[in-house]
Simulated assay, not measured.
Amino acid sequence: MEQSVWSFPDSEANEMAGSTLPLRAMGRLLRGHRMHAGKSQLAAGLHIEISPQTLGRMEDGQKIKISTVQIGSLLDFYAIGEPSPERSEILGLWDEVKQEIRVAKRSGSSAGWWRAYSDQYAYHFDQYLALEATACGITVFQLALIPGLLQHPDYRRAMIRIADPELSAVDIERRLELAARRQSMLTERADTVGMKCLLSEAVLGHRPGGREVMAAQCRFLAELTTRPNIALRIVPSDADGHLGLVVQSFTLLEFPPLSSRNLTEPPVVYVEGYEGALYLEHSSVIERHRRAIANIEQVALSESDTKQLFSRFAEEFGT
């Protein structure tokens, strides 16, 4: 996936990076208006003097260099005149984006905090981190590894060394800091963010870092099962055939409605590979992954049995 460089002409906008819910909603609506008007991305981009690729990133909810005047000109091009409810909705969402930026700047909040670690992750992961930061529901299915949000620091350190054995000690620590800050979301936003994790039993058989690391990881997972906003379930190796064997590992991100508008952003399925990642939003794709989740849950252990399994593995690895 193409790397996204997100910026705004306003000086205040440079303080914020990543995708916001109002921006995603605005991009989705603009795409709908463009298609209804029968305009191509090339024509629309030329009209406001940006590339079709840049326009596409905006429609995907990513930040680009664009002004309020250009957005108004784009609406004119789509025959969304003024006054009209459609135009007011788009410009209202744009105002919300800028307001979020101003609030973040005044409060010194950590909007886009992950960009400080941008040299420590693959370019395609920037968009994921932005989506993760605004999600209210995260459902993960993993066949091979413990998901990043649930990794013990020793497990994470071992994975970093496997992926990049020449990495300096300083960069390893920075990657561990990034992982810790991501994990803190599950504690700091426990009342607004829920995570459901379905893990193949095979993830407990892979031992990056050796037995002691896996013992610590299993103890950590057992502790996580006590948190009310985290649900962990193991899919046993002897489970009957299930859709997880076909769909492979993925993450489903869901988002809260915009507080000031009757709009709900569509979920996103994230599929990561060795060379890049896919961000899937089509309703049929989301529905297929929901069916896969329901099917996998039918063969997964209960949460209490999963906790007992973690404890058993921790004891076995520790001996």
Rank of each mutant, 00 (worst) to 15 (best):
G27F: 07
A104F: 00
R157D: 10
H289A: 08
R290W: 04
Y128V: 04
Y279N: 01
V268T: 15
T319L: 13
S260Y: 10
P153G: 02
L75H: 08
G32F: 03
D191K: 07
G244T: 11
S311I: 15
R156I: 07
Q248A: 14
V69N: 14
Q53R: 10
L199C: 06
A239N: 00
V268M: 08
H124D: 12
G38R: 01
L186A: 05
A222R: 09
G56H: 11
G92M: 06
E303G: 09
R219E: 15
I50Y: 08
F125W: 12
E303R: 14
M35W: 04
S260P: 00
E89H: 15
V97C: 12
S284W: 07
W114Y: 08
E59M: 11
G45C: 07
R211W: 07
L245F: 02
S260A: 11
E254P: 00
P208N: 08
T134K: 02
I71R: 03
R102W: 05
E96T: 06
G273C: 07
S40K: 03
I230H: 10
E100G: 06
V268I: 12
G209W: 09
M58S: 03
V247D: 09
N14T: 14
I230Q: 12
Y279L: 02
V246D: 14
L278S: 12
L167E: 14
L263R: 00
A43P: 08
G92S: 02
R182I: 05
Q120F: 06
Y78W: 06
V170R: 14
E201Q: 11
E100H: 01
V103L: 12
P256H: 02
T187Q: 15
L55R: 12
E177S: 13
L204W: 11
T139Y: 05
D191L: 05
L258Y: 02
A144K: 05
T319H: 15
A180Y: 10
R28C: 02
L75S: 04
Q248I: 01
L129F: 05
V213H: 12
L258P: 04
E177Q: 15
S283M: 06
S302A: 08
T251V: 14
A17G: 13
Q53P: 00
A292S: 12
N262I: 08
L198S: 02
H282W: 05
G209Q: 07
Q127L: 13
G32R: 14
G276S: 11
L252C: 01
T68V: 05
M16P: 00
P85Y: 05
I80T: 09
T20R: 15
I80A: 05
H47V: 03
S283P: 00
M159T: 11
V213E: 08
R312K: 13
R233T: 02
E82C: 10
K105L: 11
L258N: 04
G32V: 01
Q298T: 05
L245W: 03
I64G: 03
S249N: 09
R288I: 04
Q62P: 02
E272V: 09
V213F: 12
G38P: 06
R31N: 01
H282C: 02
Y274M: 15
L145K: 04
V97Q: 10
E59W: 10
